[in-house]
Design a binder for these strands. Structure first.
Lengths: 156, 156
DNA sequence: TTAGGTGCAAAGAGTTTGCTCGTAT
DNA sequence: ATACGAGCAAACTCTTTGCACCTAA
């Protein structure tokens, strides 16, 4: 069945090869921020007639078409996530590398205002937090547990 | 005369070779965010007995010592600026690549609060805006010019 | 004196690309 | 039929490193 990303590709007039269909499916099923190597691994699991060069070419194409967004979380490799995931930002756990998404709609406004103050139109922005999981404080009431944290998503 | 960065190096017990002294001087005079290639160029202008490998090794060392900070503005190369430059963020002009620094002290608080809400202590963060210089609106009063923008710094 | 720094060239990691063949439209 | 995509390996860019030599402390 046609995946969400595949539909977007067709809408933008891309020629749909077998390889692209597989990569589109992998991306549609993606809830995290895989790098090219990981996408290649997942795609190969579905169909091993895919080369990593094709994955590179495809993510680049999809990024240009606005279907994918490239991220850089440090570590020297680009990572990708489907666009229209809703505006959100990332908090990277410095110990584990885990990425937590969070929203903060107020920021959008503030950032645009800052850009405007400097005489610019805001094209895009990058907001990333690097944090360390807070240890439950071994304090007066050691049995007290913090309530579970609400978060939008957790992923590699 | 001993440059600011050289003093920091000595304070941290680094062996001061001729090359390091030159690189320290270049960094002390730096008001922008040069990449390694550019640092190498500037250092070579002062003393041509410096190899780019040494520049790479030195910026890495100084980063580990907390004297330098590595930035990534996209474009695939690391860029550096001396630490203790005061907390600030960057707006990158997407047309020219020019970097404009700005401060927004309120952000620090907000970001720490967001991290805390997710159960993390904020270790560091990255906030970058990508913008396009706003054209003077060719509107009713075409002679009106925007007042000059106040900015902290402009650099490559 | 000697731990540690430097230059050079080679090696790595991630990504792109030239070329030939294959395939969606 | 043909314009465009895929596979493969080579090339590229940025950065790190092994090794022999050099130098600050």
């Amino acid at each position: 069945m046609e995946s969400r990303i595949e539909r977007l590709c067709v809408e933008r007039g891309l020629k749909m090869t077998g390889q692209r269909r597989v990569i589109a499916r992998v991306l549609s099923d993606t809830g995290d921020h895989p790098d090219v190597e990981e996408l290649y691994r997942r795609a190969s699991a579905l169909d091993n007639r895919i080369s990593i060069a094709t994955v590179y070419r495809t993510v680049r194409l999809l990024e240009e078409k606005g279907i994918l967004e490239r991220r850089d979380f440090g570590g020297g490799r680009a990572r990708y996530e489907p666009s229209e995931h809703g505006h959100h930002h990332h908090l990277i756990d410095v110990e584990t590398g885990r990425v937590i998404e969070f929203e903060d709609s107020e920021h959008e406004r503030v950032l645009a205002a800052i850009a405007a103050r400097l005489g610019f139109d805001l094209v895009s922005h990058r907001l990333e937090l690097f944090g360390r999981r807070r240890e439950p404080v071994a304090a007066a009431k050691p049995v007290a547990k913090r309530p579970p944290v609400r978060r939008t998503a957790v992923s590699q």
